[in-house]
């Protein structure tokens, strides 16, 4: 009986902690919104973060995009061959990339690369009292540290998704046309036939949401770090795990709403 109530107790605490954390993240989002529109605007900070989140993620995004497109073409080909519908591979790759894999994989890669870095950077600043120093100098850390990162996330992830979509389709084209021998004209025709402008744009809207999620969670976890170097490590891990889960779950709901 005692053990049972203990388990209940732990379950309740876990749920409450989860809800509390979510509430805190939302509060952080609200204060980010509030500070975002309060001058002065430190454009240089934003550009630095955009460079870090966007420009420096290009390589990894191109890599994942290309190979995802390639493997989709390969897998799709074997499936479609059963129905003699190999020509649909192009459209399938393009549709899959623009709607789903482009935004999700890009966000996950950016989470791993930049979201974790945000958590680690802010975490280190927290444990080395740099955040306290900001407070002491009457400078708001949300404005100085979190706003530029969230802006960068929201703007750069969609842009990276465009790159990912494009290279994914290129990768699919390469495999489909040059390796599997699908007619290139039909391959491209099916892409333009099946993919709608809305597929691309909704994919980008999703990507922007994911960019918000990953930067917000990365910053939240870093900002609330405690416990020295170990704490920074923990915050980083938690940020990546939580952001990835949040991206995948919200992906479902965003898809349900949009498509």
């Amino acid at each position: 009986m005692n053990r049972f109530s203990g388990a209940l107790d732990r379950l309740g605490r876990a749920v409450l902690a989860g809800v509390e954390e979510m509430g805190k993240i939302i509060l952080l989002f609200v204060s980010v919104l509030a500070w975002m529109f309060r001058p002065p605007f430190k454009l240089h900070n934003i550009f630095k973060q955009m460079e870090f989140v966007g420009v420096k993620s290009i390589f990894v995004v191109v890599l994942t995009g290309t190979f995802t497109g390639m493997v989709m073409a390969l897998q799709g080909y074997h499936g479609f061959r059963m129905f003699s519908a190999e020509s649909l591979v192009g459209g399938t790759v393009a549709l899959g990339m623009t709607r789903e894999l482009g935004p999700v994989l890009t966000s996950l890669m950016v989470t791993a690369r930049a979201g974790s870095a945000m958590a680690a950077e802010l975490g280190t600043m927290r444990v080395t009292e740099q955040i306290d120093a900001l407070y002491v100098m009457a400078a708001n850390p949300v404005k100085h540290l979190i706003v530029p990162r969230v802006i960068a996330g929201v703007l750069m992830v969609p842009l990276l998704t465009v790159v990912s979509d494009f290279t994914g389709i290129l990768g699919g084209y390469f495999v489909g046309v040059h390796i599997l021998g699908i007619n290139s004209g039909i391959f491209i025709k099916n892409i333009t036939r099946l993919v709608d402008l809305n597929d691309i744009y909704n994919g980008l809207v999703k990507a922007a949401c994911f960019g918000l999620i990953l930067s917000l969670i990365g910053c939240y976890k870093g900002f609330n770090t405690y416990g020295g170097a170990e704490g920074v490590g923990r915050a980083t891990t938690e940020a990546v795990v939580l952001a990835s889960i949040a991206i995948l779950i919200s992906d479902y709901f965003l898809t349900a709403i949009m498509f």
Binding site: T98, V162, F166, I191, T192, V195, D196, D199, I200
Partner: peptide, 9 residues
């Protein structure tokens, strides 16, 4: 790239 894809599609 986005413009190119949009125009194509």
């Amino acid at each position: 790239i986005l413009g190119y894809m949009s125009v194509q599609v």
